[in-house]
Simulated scan of single mutants.
Amino acid sequence: MKQLLFALEDLWKRKWLSLLLLIQCILLLCIANFVTDNIKDLSNMKQEVERVTKSEPIYYFHDLTTEKQLDRTLNQSAHLEEYKKIYKEIYEKQDSQAFSLYSTSYPFDLRYFKENVKDLIVEGHQVYIDVLTFANQSFYDYAQLKMAEGRYFQKEDLSPSKQPTSVVIGADLSVSLQVGSEFTSDEERFRVIGILEKNMSYMNLAASKDFIQLDRMILLPTPVLEDNTDYYSIISSSFIPTSNEQDLRDLMEVIQQQGHISFIYSDLSKQVPYVLEDKRKWIQMQLMLTILISAFTLISITVSYLQFIRKYMFDLGVHILIGATKNQVIVRLCSQLMILFVIANSIVIFIIHKFQLSFIVTVISCLILWIIPIIRIRKMKIDEMLRRKS
């Protein structure tokens, strides 16, 4: 216990050097957690890809529409009926399993979300929340969603004219709202019918390498479609699970007949190797960078720690001169670094809420960093220590 108190006194006497060491320890722990998260992310991605593509094929659209075509169709209401026809062909067939991964940001009345303000964008009396605009049953199956409370959308929730509009919210928004709560966006009213479990997410394999978290999102059962832009956004983000590729060919004929937008369809499973390879390259690049930063950080900690010890060599010599053993001095030195890592762990755990990896990195780092000081103390004679007064 005495050695621990001596270690605390040592750290306080050289507080600026101690602060530098603490910052370096925090950086090392953060880097280690960052690397591990990326490796886990790749593993989770592989599992998700295998799950999504192991059943019936899922097709998605490659959008080949030019900017000139979009300018001509999106800005002219005369083309609205053409978009409606394509939309109906995709979504309103009796056996349609199509879903869209289009999301956007809606302005909602701030007073309903005051507990979530720190996580959201606020402008005046409105707060902007991401909304998945077409979270039908097919999306529920695709993302394998789980409910913490309430229920998911049913047939009676699908009518666009139904008021208030039924919604399902992410887990983080349950701080502000509960099942049955109502809230508004301009003049439109919404009622919460369900709350998702924490950490629900989905992947848009056609467009992204990352999981899209639903914890701070609102899910709508059907999109509000008013103009060409709304229809185009939904259509271009559509996914169609089907074992009958002829359905896709028929759909392409309908699209081509309109003559103003251009799509081709692709099997999602054929996109998977490219997505995984892209993710691997991204992680490899991050790993190389983080390994270099980690090595530099570890070297910096070693240099700072040795400098810290050098400044205390005279004190340690005096400690031995008045009766301390070298083992007690070693405990005093090792305790200094251990205290810094305990503080660093507390800070990192508070920020990222992970303990196990930080503890492992701490143990490994301490074992590496203790080697040189222990060897030096054991080999150094008392007269050498007393000559090193700074």
Rank of each mutant, 00 (worst) to 15 (best):
C30M: 10
V254L: 09
I26Y: 02
Y152F: 15
Q286H: 03
I351C: 05
L101E: 10
Y91P: 03
R310A: 12
F34P: 00
T165P: 00
I195T: 08
N75K: 12
I261R: 01
S236V: 15
D109T: 15
K68F: 11
I240Q: 02
L20S: 08
K381V: 08
S243F: 04
F314M: 01
R216Y: 10
L145W: 05
R280L: 12
I343K: 02
R111H: 13
D230M: 10
F61P: 02
G323P: 03
I309N: 03
P223M: 14
K2Q: 11
A324M: 03
A7H: 03
K354N: 14
Q24R: 00
L298W: 05
F355N: 05
C30D: 01
I371F: 15
M380D: 03
R51C: 06
Q213F: 10
Q94W: 08
S55T: 11
S335H: 06
L289Q: 07
S103G: 10
G180Y: 05
R191Q: 14
R310E: 11
K13H: 09
S103A: 14
A324H: 02
T104L: 09
D141W: 04
S43R: 11
D230K: 11
K162Q: 11
V331H: 05
K85H: 12
I212Y: 04
Y305R: 01
R216M: 07
V224S: 13
I234Y: 05
I261A: 06
F108E: 07
V168F: 06
Y102H: 15
G170M: 04
L306I: 12
L369S: 08
I375S: 06
D41L: 09
A148S: 13
D130Y: 10
L337N: 06
E115S: 14
T65Y: 05
Y106S: 11
S238I: 09
K162C: 01
F113H: 07
L11T: 04
V303M: 06
F211Y: 09
M45F: 15
L333T: 12
F263V: 12
T242V: 12
E50H: 08
Q284D: 09
D172E: 13
L5R: 11
F359A: 15
V224A: 10
K379S: 13
S233Y: 14
K118Y: 09
L20R: 02
C334G: 03
I291V: 13
T36M: 01
V224K: 11
N228T: 11
G259D: 08
L248S: 08
L64R: 12
I377R: 01
V363C: 06
N116L: 06
T184P: 00
I240R: 02
R332K: 15
K209E: 09
I320G: 01
E384F: 08
K162V: 11
Q246K: 15
L316H: 02
Q178P: 01
K381S: 11
N33E: 14
Y87A: 10
I261Y: 06
K93A: 13
L196W: 03
I364G: 04
F190E: 04
D215N: 15
V168G: 05
D63V: 12
K85L: 12
V272H: 02
L120R: 07
T297Q: 00
L101N: 07
R216P: 00
K311P: 00
I320A: 06
K326G: 05
V342G: 02
F190N: 06
S100W: 02
